[in-house]
Measured scan of single mutants.
Amino acid sequence: RRKSKRKPPPKKKMTGTLETQFTCPFCNHEKSCDVKMDRARNTGVISCTVCLEEFQTPITYLSEPVDVYSDWIDACE
């Protein structure tokens, strides 16, 4: 008699959501930077609500707010 092989359980999909508020690289306030994605103009704007620092970068249809933040961090270095 042959043993029946069980199929492995399906893999769980990533359910965690990406951050939309970030720590400002200038004033170091946590969750003080908000990202606005202007898909019509293909630009992402991130601004700090505390020190009013602002950064704008081009985006694509695949871009997420975390991509705008990482572009800002890269531009600071």
Rank of each mutant, 00 (worst) to 15 (best):
P58Q: 12
I46M: 06
Y69F: 15
K5V: 03
C51M: 00
S47H: 08
K13V: 11
V45A: 09
S63K: 14
D74K: 10
V50H: 15
W72R: 02
K31G: 07
C33F: 04
T17C: 07
Q56E: 14
K11V: 08
C76G: 09
R39G: 05
D38F: 04
V68T: 01
G16I: 04
E19P: 05
F22G: 05
N28Q: 05
L18T: 10
K5A: 05
T20N: 09
S70A: 14
K12I: 12
V68I: 07
M37H: 00
G44S: 05
R39S: 15
Y61R: 15
R39A: 06
N42L: 12
Q56R: 14
Y69K: 02
K31Y: 04
F55L: 04
D67V: 02
I59K: 01
T20A: 14
C48V: 00
T20H: 05
K13M: 11
K12D: 07
R41S: 10
K7D: 04
C48A: 00
R6C: 03
P8V: 11
E30D: 11
R39F: 07
C76F: 13
P10F: 04
K3N: 15
C33H: 00
V35R: 01
G16K: 06
I73K: 15
D34A: 10
T49N: 14
R6W: 03
A40V: 10
P9K: 08
K5S: 10
D74A: 14
Y69P: 01
S70F: 05
I59Q: 03
V45F: 04
S70T: 12
D71G: 12
C76S: 08
Q56S: 06
W72E: 01
E19I: 03
S4A: 08
E64A: 14
P8E: 13
M37I: 04
S32P: 11
V50A: 14
T43H: 04
F22A: 04
N42H: 14
D38T: 03
F22L: 08
D34C: 06
F55C: 12
S47I: 11
E64Q: 14
I73S: 07
T60E: 15
D34F: 04
I73D: 00
C76K: 09
S4E: 13
T23E: 09
T20V: 09
C48Y: 00
C27M: 00
C24W: 01
E30R: 08
K31S: 12
A75Y: 11
R1Y: 03
T17F: 13
H29L: 04
C48P: 02
M14E: 12
M37Y: 02
K5H: 09
S4D: 06
K7V: 10
A75C: 10
V35T: 04
M37P: 01
L18F: 05
T57W: 05
K11T: 09
W72I: 01
E64K: 11
Y69R: 03
P25M: 04
A40P: 03
L52N: 08
M14C: 06
P25I: 04
V35M: 06
T23W: 08
C33S: 06
P9W: 07
V66I: 04
E19D: 04
T20L: 15
D67C: 03
P8H: 15
K13I: 06
S63Q: 06
V35S: 04
M37T: 01
G16V: 13
H29T: 07
W72P: 06
S47L: 10
G44W: 03
N42G: 11
R39P: 09
Y69I: 02
T17I: 15
D34N: 13
C33N: 01
I59G: 03
Q21G: 10
C24K: 01
V50P: 00
V66F: 09
D74E: 13
T43I: 14
R6N: 15
P65I: 03
E19M: 09
R39L: 08
K7T: 15
C27W: 00
G16P: 11
R39H: 15
C51G: 00
P65L: 04
G16F: 03
L52D: 13
N28K: 13
C24S: 02
T49Q: 11
K7L: 08
K3E: 15
I59P: 02
D34W: 05
N28S: 15
A40R: 15
Q21I: 04
P65Y: 07
D74T: 13
C24T: 01
K11W: 01
M14Q: 08
R6E: 15
C24I: 00
A40C: 05
K36L: 08
M14N: 05
D34M: 05
K36G: 03
P9G: 12
E64N: 11
G16M: 08
Q21M: 13
V35P: 04
S70D: 12
L18M: 08
G44I: 00
D34I: 12
Y69D: 01
Y61M: 15
V45L: 06
C24N: 00
P8Y: 05
L18N: 15
P25T: 03
V45E: 14
E30Y: 05
K5R: 09
N28T: 14
D74W: 07
W72C: 06
K31R: 08
M37S: 00
S4F: 09
V50I: 06
K11Y: 03
S63D: 05
Q21A: 05
D38G: 02
E77D: 12
G16Y: 06
V50D: 10
C33V: 13
T17H: 09
R41Y: 04
V35Y: 03
T49D: 08
T60V: 10
S63M: 13
